[in-house]
Deep mutational scan, measured.
Amino acid sequence: PVYLSVKADNSMFIGNDPVTDETMITALNALTEGKKDTTIFFRADKTVDYETLMKVMDTLHQAGYLKIGLVG
């Protein structure tokens, strides 16, 4: 499974590897070998604001990742 996490300080990680807004999709493409039907499990600290969550989800959708599971 692929886990994308947003921490309380808005830092992002794919698994244990830090990513930025600019590198997130490139890292996901490498990890999933470009398979856009891969489910991305998205988790965020409860203090992360809604705007940040939606920005990340919008970026995922624009890149073609449509299977996003929200996890606690």
Score class of each variant (00 low, 15 high):
residue 42 F to E: 00
residue 37 D to F: 05
residue 17 D to C: 13
residue 43 R to N: 12
residue 64 G to W: 01
residue 40 I to G: 01
residue 26 T to V: 12
residue 6 V to H: 02
residue 18 P to V: 08
residue 26 T to Q: 13
residue 55 K to V: 05
residue 42 F to K: 00
residue 62 Q to L: 12
residue 60 L to P: 00
residue 38 T to E: 05
residue 62 Q to V: 07
residue 7 K to F: 14
residue 14 I to Q: 01
residue 41 F to H: 10
residue 32 T to N: 03
residue 25 I to F: 03
residue 6 V to W: 06
residue 70 L to V: 10
residue 40 I to P: 00
residue 26 T to N: 11
residue 34 G to H: 07
residue 32 T to K: 02
residue 21 D to Q: 15
residue 56 V to I: 14
residue 48 V to L: 09
residue 21 D to S: 14
residue 56 V to G: 01
residue 48 V to P: 02
residue 63 A to K: 02
residue 56 V to Y: 08
residue 37 D to I: 03
residue 10 N to T: 07
residue 34 G to F: 07
residue 33 E to C: 11
residue 63 A to E: 07
residue 42 F to Y: 04
residue 70 L to T: 10
residue 28 L to M: 06
residue 43 R to K: 12
residue 55 K to Y: 07
residue 44 A to L: 10
residue 1 P to L: 08
residue 4 L to N: 00
residue 44 A to R: 03
residue 24 M to E: 00
residue 25 I to W: 03
residue 34 G to D: 06
residue 28 L to V: 04
residue 39 T to K: 12
residue 53 L to K: 06
residue 71 V to K: 06
residue 61 H to W: 11
residue 14 I to G: 01
residue 60 L to A: 02
residue 59 T to G: 05
residue 33 E to P: 02
residue 64 G to D: 02
residue 12 M to A: 02
residue 19 V to E: 02
residue 47 T to G: 15
residue 4 L to Y: 01
residue 45 D to K: 02
residue 2 V to M: 04
residue 2 V to H: 02
residue 40 I to K: 00
residue 19 V to H: 03
residue 27 A to K: 14
residue 70 L to S: 05
residue 65 Y to C: 02
residue 30 A to M: 12
residue 69 G to V: 15
residue 72 G to H: 11
residue 23 T to F: 05
residue 51 E to A: 13
residue 66 L to H: 15
residue 42 F to Q: 00
residue 19 V to P: 01
residue 46 K to S: 13
residue 25 I to G: 02
residue 48 V to S: 04
residue 44 A to I: 13
residue 3 Y to P: 01
residue 36 K to Q: 06
residue 65 Y to W: 05
residue 12 M to C: 04
residue 31 L to H: 08
residue 1 P to M: 06
residue 50 Y to G: 07
residue 9 D to G: 09
residue 17 D to Q: 14
residue 41 F to A: 04
residue 67 K to D: 11
residue 46 K to Q: 12
residue 10 N to F: 10
residue 18 P to Q: 12
residue 28 L to W: 01
residue 45 D to A: 09
residue 23 T to L: 06
residue 2 V to W: 02
residue 32 T to R: 02
residue 29 N to C: 05
residue 30 A to E: 10
residue 15 G to T: 02
residue 11 S to G: 05
residue 70 L to R: 06
residue 36 K to H: 07
residue 49 D to T: 14
residue 42 F to P: 01
residue 2 V to E: 01
residue 7 K to E: 09
residue 37 D to A: 07
residue 4 L to S: 01
residue 43 R to W: 15
residue 40 I to H: 00
residue 17 D to P: 01
residue 5 S to M: 12
residue 50 Y to N: 10
residue 15 G to D: 08
residue 65 Y to E: 00
residue 9 D to N: 10
residue 29 N to Y: 08
residue 34 G to P: 02
residue 51 E to F: 10
residue 21 D to F: 15
residue 11 S to W: 05
residue 39 T to P: 14
residue 3 Y to F: 11
residue 67 K to W: 08
residue 1 P to N: 08
residue 17 D to F: 13
residue 70 L to Q: 06
residue 68 I to L: 06
residue 72 G to Q: 12
residue 12 M to F: 06
residue 61 H to I: 13
residue 22 E to Q: 11
residue 40 I to A: 00
residue 33 E to N: 14
residue 59 T to N: 11
residue 35 K to G: 04
residue 5 S to H: 14
residue 27 A to F: 13
residue 31 L to I: 11
residue 58 D to S: 12
residue 44 A to C: 12
residue 69 G to T: 15
residue 30 A to N: 11
residue 45 D to F: 03
residue 13 F to Y: 13
residue 12 M to Y: 14
residue 3 Y to R: 04
residue 40 I to V: 06
residue 36 K to G: 04
residue 32 T to G: 02
residue 31 L to K: 10
residue 25 I to A: 03
residue 20 T to M: 03
residue 38 T to L: 08
residue 15 G to K: 03
residue 41 F to Q: 06
residue 54 M to E: 07
residue 23 T to G: 07
residue 32 T to A: 03
residue 58 D to T: 12
residue 48 V to M: 05
residue 31 L to W: 08
residue 16 N to E: 12
residue 46 K to Y: 11
residue 7 K to Q: 09
residue 8 A to K: 08
residue 47 T to E: 14
residue 45 D to Q: 03
residue 30 A to P: 01
residue 10 N to S: 09
residue 11 S to T: 13
residue 27 A to G: 04
residue 44 A to T: 09
residue 43 R to I: 15
residue 6 V to F: 10
residue 39 T to A: 09
residue 44 A to E: 02
residue 48 V to D: 03
residue 62 Q to W: 05
residue 4 L to H: 01
residue 65 Y to R: 00
residue 35 K to L: 06
residue 18 P to D: 03
residue 64 G to H: 02
residue 49 D to G: 13
